[in-house]
Amino acid sequence: MGKPTAINNVETLCNVPTIIEKGGDWYSKIGSPNAPGTKLFCISGHVNKPGVYEIPMELTLRELIDNYGGGVKGKFKAVLPGGVSSSLLTDLDVKLDYKSVAEAGSMLGSASVIVINGDSSIVDVTKNSMEFFVHESCGQCTPCREGTRTANAIIGRFANGEGREEELEILLELGDVMYDTSRCGLGQAAMNITTSAIKMFRDEFMQRVKN
């Protein structure tokens, strides 16, 4: 709005005393020029040491997973760098700052990193995520309320081996509509995992097409 704004975010407020004590120049030397300072990363999924780690915003996904998460359990398949609202990535050498993750085609969001291994079905992961969005939608706007339900029903058919190939295009189109017309960030981001899953792992969906 062009005016000073108070950001009452716990993570932000926790940084304030140290910055006051040691100065902004000291803080800006941590991390990268694109994203100075540290961030709390919650890493979960198929890793050996899930947890919350405070690290400089200059490390890569690979360094976070290997050096802090204890490595992947099994063979790496994909990762959600910003929770289920973000798009899937397969490149582990992406730096963990907002700009780099966005340029890679996803978003860092709250830095809730979810690692997926090769034993997991992307279709099932997508179905589980969409069930979350159906539950979390407040129902106030039609695109999100009806869009999440429709997407969940379609993905459910694929999960049960009864999907139709043309429904993949419907899901991609639905993702565009929800992004453009939903009233809040939840609806706008709800289809990110689905659309990225179809684009990157279309073969897994095709294996669930009804013959």
Rank of each mutant, 00 (worst) to 15 (best):
Pro4Asp: 13
Thr5Cys: 11
Ala6Trp: 11
Ala6Glu: 11
Ala6Lys: 14
Ala6Met: 12
Ala6Phe: 15
Ile7Gly: 05
Asn9Val: 01
Thr12Leu: 14
Thr12Phe: 15
Thr12His: 10
Leu13Met: 14
Leu13Val: 12
Cys14Pro: 00
Val16Pro: 06
Thr18Asn: 11
Thr18Trp: 08
Ile19Val: 15
Gly23Glu: 05
Gly23Arg: 04
Gly24Lys: 08
Trp26Ser: 09
Trp26Thr: 08
Trp26Phe: 11
Lys29Asn: 11
Ser32Pro: 05
Pro36Val: 09
Thr38Ala: 07
Thr38Phe: 10
Lys39Gln: 13
Lys39Ile: 07
Cys42Asp: 11
Ile43Ala: 01
Ile43Trp: 01
Gly45Leu: 00
Val47Trp: 01
Pro50Tyr: 03
Met57Ile: 03
Leu59Ile: 15
Leu59Asn: 00
Thr60Cys: 07
Leu61Asp: 02
Arg62His: 14
Gly69Phe: 02
Gly69Asp: 01
Gly69Met: 04
Gly69Asn: 04
Gly70Ser: 13
Gly71Asn: 06
Val72Arg: 03
Lys73Phe: 00
Phe76Asp: 05
Val79Glu: 10
Gly82Ile: 03
Gly83Leu: 03
Val84Gln: 12
Ser85Gln: 11
Leu88Asn: 00
Leu88Arg: 00
Leu88Val: 00
Leu92Arg: 11
Asp93Ala: 06
Asp93Leu: 09
Lys95Glu: 13
Lys95Leu: 12
Tyr98His: 12
Lys99Ile: 13
Ala104Leu: 08
Val113Trp: 10
Val113His: 05
Ile114Ala: 02
Ile114Asn: 00
Asn117Arg: 07
Asp119Cys: 03
Ser121Thr: 06
Ile122Glu: 08
Asp124Ser: 08
Asp124Asn: 13
Val125Arg: 02
Thr126Trp: 03
Asn128Thr: 13
Ser129Arg: 01
Phe132Val: 08
Phe132Ser: 03
Phe132Pro: 00
Glu136Phe: 02
Gln140Pro: 00
Gln140Met: 10
Thr142Val: 15
Pro143Ile: 07
Gly147Cys: 07
Thr148Lys: 04
Arg149Gly: 07
Arg149Thr: 05
Thr150Gly: 09
Ala151His: 02
Ile154Tyr: 14
Ala159Ile: 04
Glu165Arg: 08
Glu165Ile: 05
Glu167Trp: 08
Glu167Lys: 07
Leu168Cys: 04
Glu169Asp: 15
Glu169Pro: 02
Leu171Gln: 03
Glu173Met: 06
Leu174His: 04
Leu174Trp: 02
Gly175Leu: 01
Tyr179Cys: 07
Asp180Ala: 15
Asp180Arg: 14
Thr181Arg: 14
Cys184Glu: 07
Gly185Pro: 10
Ala190Gly: 12
Thr195Arg: 15
Ser196Val: 04
Met200Ile: 08
Met200Arg: 09
Met200Trp: 02
Arg202Ile: 02
Arg202Asp: 04
Asp203Arg: 09
Gln207Leu: 14
Gln207Ile: 01
